[in-house]
Simulated scan of single mutants.
Amino acid sequence: MSLARENRIDLVRGLSLLVIFVDHSNLSFSGALQHSRGFCDAAELFVMMAGMSAALAYHPASGAAGFRATASRTLRRSFKLYWIHLLMLAAVVAAVFLLPFIRDPALVREWSLDKLAAQPVRYAVEAIFLRYLPAELDILPLYMLLIAAVPLFFAAIDVAPRLALAASVALWLLAGIFHLNLVDFSQPKGLWYFNPFSWQLVFVCGLLAGLRVRQGQAPFAFSKPLFILAFVFCLVAIPADLVIHLGEYGETTPLRFLISKTSEGPLRLINALAIVYVVFNLDALQRLSPTGWLRPVFAAGRNSLPIFVLGEILSDIVTVSVFGREGIPLALELLAVFVGVAILLGFALHRDRAKRRRSGKPASSLLVASQPEPDYGPETTTEPPSIPDARPNTAT
């Protein structure tokens, strides 16, 4: 069976991870950078790439045995993400409350740790049950739920793909209209910032595209009129989003619903689909070599979970510096970005070399089969991405 490499998933993830680091660093230009990419941001791209990777890595062989094997693997992955999430939260809390030079009331408020400081036992328990997600540590819980639900998504899609997509759209609409969501005491509205009932649609779109790739088809069938329309939408969305947010129109109705990140508003969803459609139909991106000058970026995408964790640590360090000094000069901000990006890319290359030494083979990206296989194990494809996003300064 002939195999081809699908490297654009890693490229999108790697580039997004670098932008996420800047977005979460709370620099003077972080907000403007985030809103200069259109209605959506890295969150949608990550979740959609997660769906594509899950289709390649976890789609089961036919029958009950294949379903059980997939369920076992996805549950193990979810529990791994759960423990990583708790460790990251514990590290942030320990740093803020135990290190005198970090303890800052403004930082405690920024990371929504004030309730934990007031009632540590209660909110520590809530954190264990994912009902308290402070310090921007809310993307891993979303992915945790989505990856655990992968076998159910497969079961529905394998029976009737269009009906499964229609059901996903219906759930997205119901969640947006009736505000169906989970509890998060760290948020002003007391609800998850990334509503899983809304964001599952982004993930399902990725799953469907990944299953097409698995069957030897293009993830998004090319149509010249549709490509032009998607490209124009991506361009127009950039100044439109800047006008909305810089002009503070985003808090008004109906724009608030159209661009809501919590409910994955229609404009965000359309923008994300348009970006991915353009990216996966550009021949120039398909021809980019993962071993060329962009190798560190591809490596970051292949090692998305450790790179995300390191990026969060670095962005937290920068945030502490900004809050502790009430801002830093622009030159130091740019230096922090350069050093942080260099550390992330260097660590990604180190991870790739370590993998190559262990396996004796070059680090590979996602392997895409020209014909369906019973199962894609860890030895033939990287694990699906498990990361998170860049988020706006205020929830909608």
Rank of each mutant, 00 (worst) to 15 (best):
A90L: 14
F298N: 11
S186Y: 00
A331N: 07
K80E: 15
V213A: 15
H179L: 07
M49S: 15
A64L: 13
L163K: 11
F178L: 13
F222P: 02
A160W: 11
P141C: 05
A342L: 13
V318E: 10
A127L: 07
F29I: 07
F185M: 09
I387D: 14
L345H: 04
R212I: 02
V108I: 15
P141V: 03
V276I: 15
T381M: 08
R103T: 05
K361G: 01
I275E: 13
L282F: 06
A336N: 11
G311D: 07
H24P: 00
L15S: 07
N195F: 01
R122T: 10
W199R: 10
M52C: 11
S364P: 00
W172A: 04
I270H: 04
L27P: 00
G216V: 02
I147W: 08
A149F: 13
I244G: 02
L113A: 06
I157R: 05
A170D: 03
I238V: 15
Y58F: 15
R287S: 13
S2Y: 05
K355I: 06
F194P: 00
Q286E: 15
I9Y: 12
L98H: 02
E110D: 10
L87Q: 03
A117Q: 14
F222R: 12
Q187T: 07
I20E: 11
I244S: 06
E383H: 02
G206H: 05
A117I: 01
V47I: 15
Q187P: 00
L344T: 01
L98G: 11
L116H: 08
G265Y: 06
A4Q: 13
Q119H: 12
R162M: 09
N7K: 10
L180I: 08
G190P: 00
P385G: 12
L86D: 05
R37W: 07
N26S: 13
C40P: 00
A65H: 07
L180P: 00
H179M: 03
R73D: 15
G51A: 10
D184R: 03
A395H: 01
C40S: 15
R356Y: 00
S386A: 15
R358L: 14
L107M: 08
L226F: 03
L208C: 09
